[in-house]
Simulated assay, not measured.
Amino acid sequence: MIRIVVADDQELVRSGFAMILEAQADFDVVAEVGDGGAAVAAAHDLSPDVVLLDVRMPGMDGLRAARRICAETTAKVVMLTTFDQDDYVYDALYAGASGFLLKDLRRDDLVHAVRVVASGEALLAPTVTQRLIADVVRQRAAGVVTPHRLDALTARERETLLLLGRGLSNAEIAAALVVSEHTVKTHVSSVLGKLGLRDRIQAVIAAYETGLIVPGSAASDSAADS
């Protein structure tokens, strides 16, 4: 059973999401709350697997709540956003959020997203991914580049990070490297551990931030640079 907390200051939004999720036999919405402080308390008291957090809430906003929940509990956090009005994507992902979802997503996409995140994967809406990459590029242009972080990785782990950064699943990485999925999982775990990353989303950030992947370049060029 996947235990879920829904946090949104708009009652109709959070009750609507909760109703959709409760309709799934393997989901249990353990709390519906209207602000970040209540979301943090619910994460501590109810041990949910996934917390859906609205970015903008009164009192403690979603970003501050995400930092607390990711640092203090094992719950996975997914941010709910209208995106075009939000400037928190980069900070929230660094805080440990496992992804962003736009509030106008379809019912099936919401259900799928919760299952994906609960399984330990990461999720981003395509427009948010574009924004994330743009933010990383701006950070690099400002001189915030740390390629030396990659020195801790073996050649195969660097290949794995490159493919993670390109959004490939474990099965796709296994096919590309001609290894088993079990081996890929081992490489992914090692990459996350050596670089001090919480999940695959942060691995994507690291791939761009360190220059392992250059937006707009061909895969062969990036691989050669690795």
Rank of each mutant, 00 (worst) to 15 (best):
R3L: 03
D8M: 10
Q10R: 14
Q10H: 15
V13T: 11
V13F: 04
R14W: 02
R14M: 03
S15G: 00
S15C: 00
F17D: 00
F17W: 01
A18L: 09
A18V: 06
M19G: 02
M19H: 07
A25T: 11
F27K: 09
F27T: 08
V29K: 06
V30Y: 02
A31C: 05
D35S: 06
G36E: 14
G37H: 10
G37P: 06
A42Y: 01
A43E: 02
D45I: 04
L46K: 06
P48R: 03
L52N: 05
L52T: 14
V55G: 03
V55A: 10
M57Q: 04
M57V: 07
P58Y: 07
G59I: 08
G59N: 05
G62W: 06
R67M: 10
R67I: 04
R68G: 00
I69E: 01
T74R: 13
A75F: 08
T81R: 03
Q85D: 11
D86E: 10
D86V: 04
D87K: 03
Y88A: 15
Y88D: 12
A95L: 14
G96V: 13
A97K: 00
A97R: 00
S98Q: 10
F100V: 03
L102E: 09
L105C: 15
L105Q: 13
R106C: 01
D108L: 06
L110H: 14
V111R: 12
H112A: 15
V116H: 07
V116Y: 04
V117D: 00
V117Y: 02
V117W: 00
A118D: 05
S119R: 15
S119C: 12
G120P: 12
A122N: 10
A122K: 03
L123S: 09
L124D: 03
P126Y: 04
T127M: 10
I133Y: 05
A134I: 11
A134P: 05
D135H: 14
V137Q: 01
Q139T: 01
Q139V: 01
A141H: 02
V145N: 10
P147W: 07
H148R: 12
R149Y: 04
L150V: 11
D151A: 10
A152W: 02
T154Y: 01
A155W: 11
R156N: 14
R158N: 08
L161Q: 10
L161K: 12
L163M: 12
L164T: 13
G167F: 14
L168M: 15
L168V: 08
L168T: 08
S169K: 12
E172T: 06
I173Y: 09
I173R: 09
V178N: 11
V179A: 09
V179P: 05
V179R: 11
S180Y: 08
E181A: 13
V188N: 05
V188R: 15
V188P: 06
V191Y: 14
L192E: 14
G193F: 12
L195N: 03
L195R: 04
G196W: 09
R198A: 15
D199A: 12
Y208S: 07
G211P: 01
I213T: 06
P215H: 14
S217A: 14
S217K: 05
A218K: 13
S220K: 10
D221C: 03
D225W: 10
D225I: 03
S226V: 13
S226Y: 01
